[in-house]
Design a protein around this nucleic acid. Structure first.
Lengths: 300, 300
DNA sequence: CATATTGTTTTTAATAATTAAATTCAAAAC
DNA sequence: GTTTTGAATTTAATTATTAAAAACAATATG
């Protein structure tokens, strides 16, 4: 079979659900209405109706689509277990690179990776093409792809890019009016940080989530598709690095909380100079952390 | 035929070139050496050698690969006219969008576009996957792609992103030591601008090139793969817009030259405040130009 | 005997072919 | 005249096929 009839199967099952809400003898809606409702083409609707007719669940003649009897469980078609979404693939891929320290220059094997991640080779191809726009992979002359790698250089550049974007976010944030929702969010963040600080000894694992929330809140004031896309990748990579670097986690997180709090206080006080200084300090610490985790990792 | 033997053909011709540099009776280098030299696999080298043997250009027996006679023009294999590179495809694609004002939400037809641009559907697929990372296109549920479009919103966001990146470049540039090559480049740029100003009435078309050179020089101080990638797209889009927007070109370019010159002078004087102010002023003018050209275009 | 080189097999990737699904166009029913 | 259906055409996801790469084994050479 050339392409899967997955779409047909899910549509057919949806159609059974629709029949289920109707009474015996009722008329099914027109094909176009069904197509709209189920978000598929009329072609699928028609083949599904055909099958309903064959199964003698409806009687179909021209515009008459009469429900003869209610569908039962046995009528449902088996669905292929849904494949990974792009986001899930992205996560799996980065996790793999970071967990196994896949070195720079490794040639990426689409056939093997698609088996490994359980996605069609086609999807992987597309995914890698996307990553190449971020300079993480590169097309090889002889076909296939090369991992340009998560080197120290990459980390530095990523951190610096993050710094540029986030400093810009801070400047934009401080220009927002006092009744903007951001100020309430910042206050709430401050409280969350203080709360976590109290119980950090036992719950220091929770910081990773809070860290992400913190940075995402600040960045949320920038409404720009390029910035948003770039930040997605930045967040992912920082996130996964924190996951693998468990050394001195308590101490690191304690320091980070203090840095976040100074930053938050400066912004709440609308002190531009101090906000920028606090931001700079924290972002530089993050960069160092990322770099050292990379070094530690490479030595294992 | 499943895949083209283009690689074989070009390798075979290269091998003819190599034979041409040798004398009759000489020995060809080992397969591995040839593969390295021609940047193909040994498989291709061997099939090429096979053909040379069949054509009675060499006598091949184990390690003996003796040149019997010099290859002639008739021996060369016809090459498929080379397809577009990614950069060329990118240019063609943007040109198409801007020239025909392809509206937001247009569904992009890979089959048709691949015919239109003369590239394999495969390449186009990959290209679109890359663009989706910049939020220019999006995958549709029912398959295929949607153009998210070159709307005013897009232009604003692109301009603002450009502003963020270029202001950062200015700050980094000003921190460079006096013996850095950038200062000489800036001086040269200043002269070029002054020269063009003198003859602008007749040569105002030349400004587009100079503009690109100017921005690229400033951005060149930022060594960051993310910034570089982002800037590629920015440059392309600004470039193509200038191409189509011919209204008031002389006047616009005259104004832009003055803005560039104030900016250059401020940087050469290493005046941080004034450099940033001049940069801001010019980048905002650019944004307005882009926006108004978009409006003018849409009204046609 | 160690290494360089070749011969052979296996695996991978690019493209054509195939089939599901979407879209378009024409005809029929209301 | 509009809505709905029927049929034909086009498109896109996936498989199959072939070119090329890579891996492995065998052999020749110094």
């Amino acid at each position: 079979m050339a392409r899967t009839d997955d779409r047909f199967r899910s549509a057919y099952n949806k159609l059974l659900d629709i029949c289920d809400t109707m009474g015996v003898g009722d008329q099914l809606p027109p094909e176009t209405a069904l197509a709209d409702r189920m978000e598929v083409s009329r072609t699928i609707v028609r083949s599904a109706l055909q099958k309903l007719d064959t199964e003698e669940l409806i009687q179909w003649q021209g515009r008459q689509k009469t429900l003869i009897r209610k569908p039962e469980k046995k009528h449902r078609l088996a669905q292929a277990d849904n494949v990974l979404s792009t986001e899930e693939l992205e996560k799996k891929f980065l996790e793999w690179i970071l967990r196994f320290d896949v070195p720079e220059g490794t040639s990426l094997n689409v056939a093997q990776l698609s088996r490994q991640f359980g996605v069609p080779a086609h999807s992987l191809q597309e995914f890698l093409a996307g990553l190449s726009r971020f300079g993480l992979v590169e097309r090889r002359q002889k076909g296939g792809w090369t991992l340009l790698g998560f080197t120290a250089e990459f980390a530095v550049e990523l951190s610096e890019f993050r710094l540029v974007l986030e400093m810009n976010a801070v400047r934009q944030l401080l220009a927002l009016p006092p009744d903007h929702e951001i100020w309430l969010k910042l206050k709430a963040l401050k409280q969350e940080h203080e709360a976590l600080r109290e119980v950090l000894e036992t719950r220091y694992h929770d910081f990773s989530m809070l860290d992400e929330k913190f940075h995402m809140t600040i960045n949320s004031v920038v409404k720009n598709r390029f910035v948003v896309e770039a930040q997605k990748v930045i967040t992912l990579i920082f996130h996964y690095h924190y996951m693998w670097d468990k050394a001195d986690e308590l101490q690191r997180n304690a320091a980070a909380i203090e840095e976040h709090l100074s930053w938050l206080n400066a912004m709440l006080a609308k002190d531009e100079k101090q906000s920028e200084a606090a931001a700079l300090k924290h972002l530089r610490t993050s960069k160092e952390t990322l770099l050292s985790s990379l070094r530690g990792h490479k030595l294992v």
